[in-house]
Computed example of a mutant assay.
Amino acid sequence: MFERFSRPAREVVATARQEAEALGHRHFGTEHLLLALVSGTGGGHDALVAAGVDRALVAAAIADTTVLGAADADALKSVGIDLDAVLSRITESFGPDALRKAVPGRRRGRVGVSPRVKKVLELALREAVHLGHQAIGTEHILLGILRDGSGRAFTIITGAGVDPVELRRTVVDGFGKAA
């Protein structure tokens, strides 16, 4: 499948892996693909930046990942534990990176590809075929993220207030202008 990827699209996948490695993540996910898209070039990058999704926003969303989520915080609160206070105390006692260092499975070195990334890249191929394109570009990767409709990248995009239907329309319209 990768033989059909354009050079910028290949660079997005390679950069996503590098971003995950740099963060010490075990696998690279759609959030790393999104980070690579907004850091690179091509139509996917241009559409995201025009919609207000840039590297700083994506990097902050990835960094904001906590070990426990909102549902966990609510469950702990029901038994009298304030998660925010616990996290604050850990940071005070052990430093700002204490939780990142303590998360099981986070290590430096080669990272794997998450199942959702595989799905998004397959969807990118389907988008290219559907649109009659010979190569898979960064735009198709973005369309794959949008078509998947879930995952961290999709959540970051919609969390930034971007309408995924409108973003898809912008990307597809961009193909018509480039032709």
Rank of each mutant, 00 (worst) to 15 (best):
A63G: 09
D64K: 12
T65W: 10
T65E: 15
T65C: 14
T66E: 13
T66P: 01
T66F: 05
V67L: 13
V67C: 06
L68Q: 02
L68K: 04
G69N: 07
G69W: 02
G69I: 00
G69D: 09
A70K: 14
A70Y: 11
A71N: 11
A71T: 12
A71V: 10
A71Q: 13
A73V: 02
A73P: 00
A73Y: 02
A73T: 01
D74T: 08
D74C: 04
D74A: 13
A75M: 07
A75G: 08
A75N: 04
L76Y: 05
L76V: 09
K77P: 04
K77M: 13
K77A: 15
K77S: 15
S78G: 10
S78H: 07
V79L: 02
V79Q: 06
G80Y: 03
G80A: 02
I81F: 12
I81W: 11
D82G: 08
D82K: 08
D82R: 11
L83G: 00
L83H: 01
L83S: 00
L83E: 00
L83I: 00
D84F: 03
D84N: 07
D84C: 02
D84G: 07
A85L: 11
A85T: 09
A85K: 04
V86T: 00
V86H: 00
V86K: 04
V86E: 01
V86D: 01
L87G: 15
L87K: 15
S88L: 02
R89D: 13
R89L: 10
I90V: 15
I90F: 07
I90Y: 06
I90A: 12
I90G: 03
I90K: 04
T91C: 02
T91E: 07
T91L: 02
T91Y: 00
E92A: 13
E92I: 02
S93Y: 06
S93K: 13
S93I: 06
S93H: 10
F94V: 11
F94H: 15
F94C: 13
G95P: 08
G95T: 10
G95Y: 11
G95H: 09
G95I: 06
P96Q: 11
P96G: 05
P96L: 10
P96K: 11
P96E: 13
P96S: 10
P96R: 11
D97G: 09
D97F: 06
A98F: 07
A98K: 05
L99V: 13
L99F: 05
L99C: 06
R100Y: 09
R100P: 04
R100H: 10
R100A: 15
R100E: 15
K101I: 08
K101H: 14
K101N: 09
A102G: 12
A102M: 12
A102S: 09
A102V: 03
V103K: 12
V103A: 10
P104Y: 03
P104A: 02
G105L: 06
G105F: 09
